[in-house]
Computed example of a mutant assay.
Amino acid sequence: MPEGHSVHRIARQFDRNVVGRVVSASSPQGRFAEGAAVIDGREALSVRAVGKQMFLEFDGDLWLRVHLGMYGAWDFAGEILVDPTIASANGRMGQTNQRGTELDAVYDSAGENSLSSIGAPRRTRVHVRMSEQTRGLADEGDQWPPPVVGQVRLRLLTDSTCADLRGPTACELQTPDEVQATIAKLGPDPLVDDPREAEEGFVAAVRRKPTPIGLLLMDQNVVSGIGNVYRAELLFRARLDPHTPGRDVPAELVRDLWRDWARLLQIGIETGQMMTMDDLSPDDWRRAMASRDDRHWVYHRAGLPCRVCGTAVVREEMGARKLYWCPNCQK
């Protein structure tokens, strides 16, 4: 499932490649045909990501709201201008900032370029799958526009860039008031909201609820953008039992969770991966970027020894999702 970092990366791609251009819109699948007809021929004016949702503004006070949900993804094809602010951070975020080591691009086992999928500024014909959990599609060659592959809910096409949306939970048009109402229901996002107000809002929301912290972190009304991977990793990094009621978690520990989330979110955006391991050597960092099995403390490690204490990692159902945690380190 795409988590917050993926949606922020996608929004940056739209900002670089679609915003400021007139867009041709269609729904090859047919399920968004009426909406596509409304935005067809309009100029894209701005884009913003909040948590797991993206909002693309068109002229005429019209917004496209997309929630990728469990299976949604955007495919980009054509001439892709990569965000130079991301490129400037490569070699400095995460482990590399400790050693000043600049690493080359690394493609993981799912075909995702960990360090330069949004890396050095370039203008080239590429086909990029913008989602953490999905594999990139094959290059379709020089045919333009590229052929439609699979069930495409929405295709947005400029003179040189194509963005295909597949499998979203939500794809709808909204007025400015509806956009504000949607965002108002969401919890704070470290990259969107005022840092102090967002932190205080998160602490207050957690501390007043009897709900287990493992559920609260997945509640998009409490905090935006955290999904199953980040939930497990944040709780382990805090050495926090996922069953602890939110109101029983010390306020300072809730603040630490927020600040760690802000840090991991930024690393995810700048590397393209949900990297949650600390203090890795350059070689271990590259291995982690190339293999998801080496990237996390507990996620997807059920039955394997905890990397810290050796206790078998537990997997259980919480909030209809698989939760991974160490019963020794997180007690």
Rank of each mutant, 00 (worst) to 15 (best):
P195S: 00
F202L: 01
R307V: 09
N228Q: 05
V249P: 07
E172A: 11
K322V: 00
V192Q: 15
F55C: 01
M277F: 02
D284Y: 08
D241Y: 08
I118Q: 13
T85A: 04
P146E: 06
I226H: 07
W74A: 01
G141K: 12
L173S: 01
A262T: 09
W258R: 08
D108K: 09
R42L: 15
E316Q: 00
S224A: 15
E112M: 03
S131C: 02
N97L: 09
Q273S: 02
S117I: 09
N221H: 14
E316P: 01
I86K: 10
V18A: 10
L215K: 15
G319H: 07
L157D: 09
Q266A: 05
R153K: 10
P147C: 04
A37I: 12
A170N: 14
P121L: 06
V148E: 00
T101M: 10
P305E: 09
L64I: 00
Q151S: 13
E200Y: 13
R31K: 14
N90D: 06
D283T: 13
C329M: 02
A89I: 08
R21A: 01
P212Y: 00
Q98T: 01
P327I: 09
M70L: 12
R92L: 01
Q98K: 02
A110Y: 07
W285H: 05
A89E: 12
V50R: 14
G60Q: 15
V23T: 15
R321V: 02
E172H: 11
D219V: 07
T175R: 13
P28I: 06
L280C: 03
A238I: 04
W325F: 11
I213S: 12
G272M: 04
C162V: 12
A251Y: 02
C329L: 04
E197P: 13
L235G: 08
G227W: 04
T158A: 03
R99N: 11
H243E: 03
F236S: 03
E316R: 06
L235V: 10
A204Q: 15
I86A: 09
P147F: 05
D260E: 06
I10Y: 04
G78W: 08
M93Q: 11
E317G: 01
A138C: 05
Q180H: 09
H300E: 06
D159W: 12
L323P: 07
E79V: 12
P190K: 12
